[in-house]
Amino acid sequence: MSMLLEVSGVSVTFDGFRAINNLSINFAEAELRAIIGPNGAGKTTFMDIVTGKTRPDEGTVIWGEKNISLLGLSESQIAMEGIGRKFQKPTVFEDQTVRQNLAMALKNPRGPFAVLMHSKTTANAARIESIAEEIGLTQSLTRRAGELSHGQKQWLEIGMLLAQEPRLLLVDEPAAGMTVEEREKTTDILRKAAETRAVVVVEHDMEFVRRLDCKVTVLHEGSVLAEGSLDHVTSNQTVVDVYLGRGHA
């Protein structure tokens, strides 16, 4: 299986605190992965490094079949390479409709002539309908995004990222603040998305992770502590001691 992203020997220190410590972690072309760990384990810093927000002190971050080093690229260049990130708090255009939000996010040619020639093509309309169906918002396309529930806003933001056709999607705690029904729908959306791209989910909710039914990586003090199925990692005594024993289960 070819690797899409290879993080090797990465470390970063903030004011004397080593947030990431010789971290090595790889992701395949199309897979669903959950990353768990106690607060301060390095989960957010890991995403910051991959997306160019934070520069590590050492190590390599290699992307795609051309073996591009992400460490030499800006945040916008990394996004153009096909890495999308969804933060915990949804950021959608609340005054625009769901359809308009998705339309603005569509991956289209960006040159000046492309903008002049661009119109509401049938291809774009079909793509918007397809994404709306995938995220469960077909019935809400004409609604203002600000009227949506918290869970629906999360789905819309995932849809806006999918519209950009990323090869890797980083999702930060999508289950936070959701109802049980919304959480179930969210796992369905993420599992479907991972059929054609890599989807990495940082999450605290163990039931949510269990429903994702995917490979789990446990981070602790900036390094990989354990990796495998949820049952495998949660039966690891060290994982129990540093993470599950602290009331995070």
Rank of each mutant, 00 (worst) to 15 (best):
D231V: 09
R210M: 09
K192I: 02
I189R: 07
R197Y: 00
A194Q: 02
T196C: 04
R183H: 02
V216C: 09
K215A: 14
A198Q: 05
N236R: 10
K215H: 15
G177V: 11
D231H: 12
V216S: 09
L230I: 11
V233M: 03
E227Q: 02
S223R: 03
V199Y: 06
T186I: 01
D188V: 13
M206N: 07
T187I: 03
M206Q: 01
R191G: 06
K215Q: 15
A175T: 08
H232L: 12
K185G: 14
I189G: 05
T187C: 06
H204S: 10
D213W: 05
V216Q: 09
D231L: 11
A175F: 11
K215W: 13
E221F: 13
S235H: 11
H232Y: 14
D213R: 12
V180P: 15
D213L: 12
A198I: 03
A226N: 05
S235F: 06
V233K: 07
D188Q: 13
R210W: 05
G177Y: 09
V180A: 15
L225Q: 08
F208R: 06
L212E: 03
A198K: 10
T196A: 09
T186W: 01
V180Q: 14
E207F: 13
E184S: 15
V218N: 00
L212Y: 06
D231W: 11
S235Y: 05
R211T: 09
N236D: 13
L225Y: 04
M206K: 00
D231P: 06
D205W: 12
T196N: 11
E182N: 12
T187D: 05
A226S: 07
D205L: 13
H232S: 14
K215F: 14
E181W: 14
D188K: 12
R191Y: 07
T187M: 05
D188G: 13
T234K: 09
V209C: 09
K192G: 00
D213I: 10
H204T: 06
E203Q: 07
A198C: 15
E221H: 14
L190H: 02
V202H: 07
T186Y: 00
F208E: 03
L219H: 04
L225E: 00
V209S: 08
V199S: 08
R211I: 02
S223I: 01
V218F: 01
A198G: 11
T187E: 01
V201I: 08
K185Q: 15
V202S: 10
T196S: 11
Q237K: 13
A175P: 07
E221C: 08
E203L: 01
K192C: 01
H204L: 03
V224C: 01
T187W: 01
E203K: 07
D205F: 13
E227N: 01
N236Q: 10
A194Y: 02
A226F: 08
E184C: 15
T186P: 04
R183T: 13
E195D: 11
H204D: 02
A175W: 12
M178R: 10
T234E: 09
T234R: 09
V224R: 00
V218K: 00
S235G: 09
V199P: 04
R183Y: 11
L212N: 00
E221P: 05
A193I: 01
K185Y: 14
A175I: 11
S229Q: 07
T217L: 12
V224A: 06
E184R: 15
L190E: 00
H232R: 14
H220Q: 01
R197V: 05
V224D: 08
R191T: 13
V180T: 13
T196F: 05
